[in-house]
């Protein structure tokens, strides 16, 4: 059965403002990762939170391997949610891979978005020719193996993937009880879609203003990658943060909030 978009993507809408601001989680977790950021925007914005199909408390049964084999499938989730909520001029905040999902969405439906805020974006994780994404292909394969090992204890990991969803949907529900736990098969495919993606050419198709929040010492999206994004994204502002690691919205929420607010107040 096809669930509504709201159930499918576990969409939550709240806040006292009018201007919509949509937060898109990255690879690995779900909408909960924004919980340190959203309170700062509750009074002035209309907040939209969601989980991608396959993550968090989304409807795992709506997962279609062919659709989510590339980031375009995830971008379709974003567009369908905006369409469902009948929104326009959304401020889109994307963490990590969601930055590129936001870019793809904005190329598809420019009128849906007014600004992009990209937290730790990378258009391509793998080194290619002169481009330094930070990883070799074998590194990514190692990550996939690590992930696979982490799911081995899970009951449905041992059941062949295709059966798991079709015949035992209740397993999907069990898994989503815990934060950061996704159906292993879906997580692996998300990892592949993420880390093997190359959206460098897409950056140049974006005209709407954007803010790039770049952490220092981020192994997943190094500073050089942030600079590459800034160079290729017209109307972009680059901020190098004091925060280290790949999740400034969790490790340094105050700095993240103040940079976001500074950008939003200057831009409007």
């Amino acid at each position: 059965m096809v669930s509504s978009i709201a159930t499918r993507n576990n969409v939550r809408v709240y806040g006292k403002g009018v201007q919509p601001i949509m937060f898109a989680h990255g690879f690995g977790c779900d909408q909960n990762m924004w919980r340190f950021i959203t309170p700062a925007f509750e009074n002035d914005y209309r907040i939209i939170l969601f989980d991608y199909v396959g993550a968090g408390k989304s409807d795992v049964n709506a997962y279609e391997p062919e659709r989510y084999a590339s980031l375009h499938g995830y971008a379709q989730d974003v567009l369908e949610i905006i369409d469902y909520l009948k929104l326009k001029d959304v401020i889109f905040v994307g963490h990590s891979v969601s930055s590129m999902v936001g870019v793809l969405s904005a190329i598809e439906e420019p009128s849906y978005f007014s600004k992009l805020i990209l937290v730790g974006p990378s258009p391509c994780y793998i080194n290619k020719d002169d481009y330094k994404g930070g990883f070799e292909k074998k590194d990514i394969e190692g990550l996939l193996e690590t992930m696979e090992k982490n799911y081995i204890g899970w009951a449905n990991f041992l059941a062949p993937a295709i059966m798991a969803n079709k015949e035992r949907p209740e397993l999907g529900e069990e898994l989503t009880e815990s934060f950061c736990s996704t159906d292993p098969v879906i997580a692996l495919q998300f990892a592949e879609a993420t880390f093997f993606s190359d959206n460098r050419d897409d950056l140049r198709k974006i005209k709407i203003p954007s803010l790039i929040l770049q952490c220092s010492e981020d192994i997943i999206a190094p500073v050089e990658v942030g600079e590459y994004v800034h160079k290729n994204l017209a109307n972009s502002t680059l901020k190098i943060m004091k925060a280290t690691g790949h999740c400034p919205h969790m490790s340094e929420p105050e700095e993240t909030i103040s940079l976001m607010k500074e950008y939003l107040s200057n831009a409007t």
């Binding site: 590194d139 934060f179 950061c180 192994i219 997943i220």
Partner: peptide
């Protein structure tokens, strides 16, 4: 950490500890 574990640390382990 191996590189793969470093990525895992950023995408899973740290968020898990921070949240739970």
């Amino acid at each position: 950490f191996t590189l793969a574990t470093r990525i895992f640390q950023q995408t899973h382990l740290f968020p898990l500890l921070k949240m739970q």
